[in-house]
Nucleic acid binder design. Structure first.
Lengths: 348, 348
DNA sequence: ATACTTGATGTAATCGATTGCACAAATATA
DNA sequence: TATATTTGTGCAATCGATTACATCAAGTAT
């Protein structure tokens, strides 16, 4: 049928060579203005679409980047991806998204897939499950720029964009203390994931700063999913002395706990004030709306993309950098005892 | 540094030609078993990774497909994408995701981008805003297979995978009637989007079937976002006679309305029973948990992917098909008056 | 008038994998 | 023994865009 037109077709029509056409389309100064105009016009007429694959092969550059995240249907990761796209699409890059589903195996196959697709860069957030990082070395062996974000460790000397999880944990806990909490429980995740360790440190330091003891029995470790929150809520329910505050490293776990506690007549935030982490999109849909820590996900996406673009320019002698973003405490009704409803999205 | 190894490198090492290597790696019957084994072994040793871009250029096939959806951070679309990936990754395809954000302009540029990336197929769900479909013709002009899903119209004779929105609307409404509702309000979306029209027809027919009048003043049109739900909730609040049921074409709008109604002391589901649409992930996080219609998103993804694969095989003389999936009513606490809490996820 | 720029375009190789056709050697058939 | 067929490889073109280098005409300097 209608074959795609190539630069050769244009060349033939104008009785010039393909190289001239190519140069003209690239606005090469060595081509006269008159030919340029002619070529551009003819290209439009013939509905020419450059074949990016041919260019990719020749240039050794696919203009594709791969983003690997645990899952796309978490607000945080979804909007990081958006942030990345906002920047990169303007520079003619396309984004391939891979989901690791927090599985080590999937992570491995995803990396293979992306390398096979000849991506120009890989942006990744570790799967929770991952403790062995050899598959990441593959990326570096292939000379593909790697940028880690959010979840990372110091195994590799690569670019990284993270938030200050310590500060997030600290601020959340201090806020609970300011709201009058005296016995604050913390829900944390697997210890091999540094973000959870950091948030926990923040929690502990905030307690210490205000003269409260750090009690190991107040720290509940889990995978931080909804179901884990439910289980922990049930445990809390059975305690002889209820806590009066919960800082959860995950919005999901926080909601799980709140659901159970509400069932047994406990008032949130009056009896127990709760702060989650991530500012998931459902946090202002639930009742009471959930206080949380916003992770500046879009901004993070922008940083990742810009870091990548810089890296592509400097080519040699590039020194990886680390960017730490500051999270923001968002106070909603689940923790606001003093000025009730002030921050509620519904007027009055 | 360490250049990537190509089939030529392998050929040189074994003192054979690249074509033999290529054939050996493809398990071509014309190559002897001994050479095959040797080549495969050497390839492994040299850590050979096929350059898919070169293959793409030669074969005129990028092994990329583009998925265009309004947004990735809606459960429905996110899991469609997952479903698509589950199938296509096994067939060595990669998926590029584009978000239209329900904007006509973004949709246009996304299509350009995908075509430039030489994707082998495009799977798309129309943006709400879109009323002019010329940019979709571009896809067909380029001879790129197009599969529409969820939101679509009959402009093009292309493959389509949709759910039976009419049945979804009918079932939701009939369920409310069974729960004793006698005055059911419906929240619908823009009329140019067929899914909303179909759901509305389902609503109307269910009312008629049970002998209730269809009242235009009971139908509220909006963009179905959270804020729209809030506004409509406020309107309902002011009515002299409150409705006793709400069927919303969107979970978000449903939640918005519920939030307002709860504030003014109205009990859900006792005073007003509510059913949403989409089974968004937050629907069982809110209080009360929201009854809704599940759209079989993952299954839809599977269908889309498989339709595409079939299409790629049959090449010529292909007749587009239309697959209609059956949605499922999920009854939760926002509409369950008779056996309270039975379907609640918390035991007892 | 000769040598030397400058400007504009063409030639041909390249990126890496694929594949139709050619060709030699080995085997089968007459 | 001569011819036909099979088997295993090699040769070279191809996909489309890019680019170092060559070329050639016109213009400038000496």
């Amino acid at each position: 049928m209608n074959k795609k037109t190539t630069i050769h077709d244009i060349a033939k029509k104008l009785d010039i060579t393909a190289s001239t056409v190519s140069r003209a389309l690239q606005d090469n100064p060595r081509i006269s203005d008159s030919t340029k105009k002619l070529v551009v016009k003819t290209a439009r007429q013939m509905n020419y679409q450059p074949n990016s694959i041919a260019a990719a092969l020749r240039n050794g550059k696919s203009n594709l980047v791969g983003v690997m995240i645990p899952t796309v249907d978490r607000n945080f990761f979804g909007s990081i991806v958006r942030g990345i796209e906002e920047i990169l699409n303007d520079s003619d890059y396309n984004v391939i998204i891979c989901q690791s589903e927090d599985s080590h195996e999937k992570e491995k196959t995803n990396i293979k897939t992306l390398l096979k697709a000849q991506v120009d860069g890989i942006f990744a957030s570790y799967a929770k499950e991952t403790v062995d990082f050899r598959h990441y070395e593959e990326i570096l062996n292939h000379n593909v720029p790697l940028i880690l974000f959010d979840r990372m460790q110091n195994h590799f000397d690569v670019d990284a964009v993270v938030i200050d999880d310590y500060k997030g944990g600290f601020d959340a806990t201090e806020h609970l203390i300011e709201q009058g909490c005296r016995n604050i429980v913390h829900l944390t995740g697997p210890d091999n994931v540094s973000i959870y360790k950091d948030r926990k440190r923040g929690y502990e330091d905030a307690l210490r700063k205000h003269g409260f003891p750090v009690l190991q029995e107040n720290i509940y470790q889990s995978d931080l999913k909804l179901e884990a929150g439910i289980r922990i809520g049930e445990k809390l329910n059975k305690l002889s002395k209820l806590p009066d505050g919960i800082f959860s490293s995950s919005d999901y776990a926080a909601i799980g706990a709140i659901q159970v506690l509400k069932k047994s007549g406990i008032k949130i935030p009056q009896d127990i004030a709760v702060v989650g982490f991530s500012n998931e999109s459902f946090t202002n849909l639930v009742d009471p709306s959930l206080s949380t820590i916003d992770q500046k996900s879009k901004k993070m996406g922008h940083f990742i993309a810009n870091t990548f673009l810089e890296r592509m320019n400097k080519k040699e002698s590039y020194t990886p950098s680390r960017k730490v973003l500051t999270p923001e405490l968002i106070v909603r009704n689940s923790s606001l005892r003093k000025e009730h409803s002030k921050q509620n999205f519904i007027k009055n």
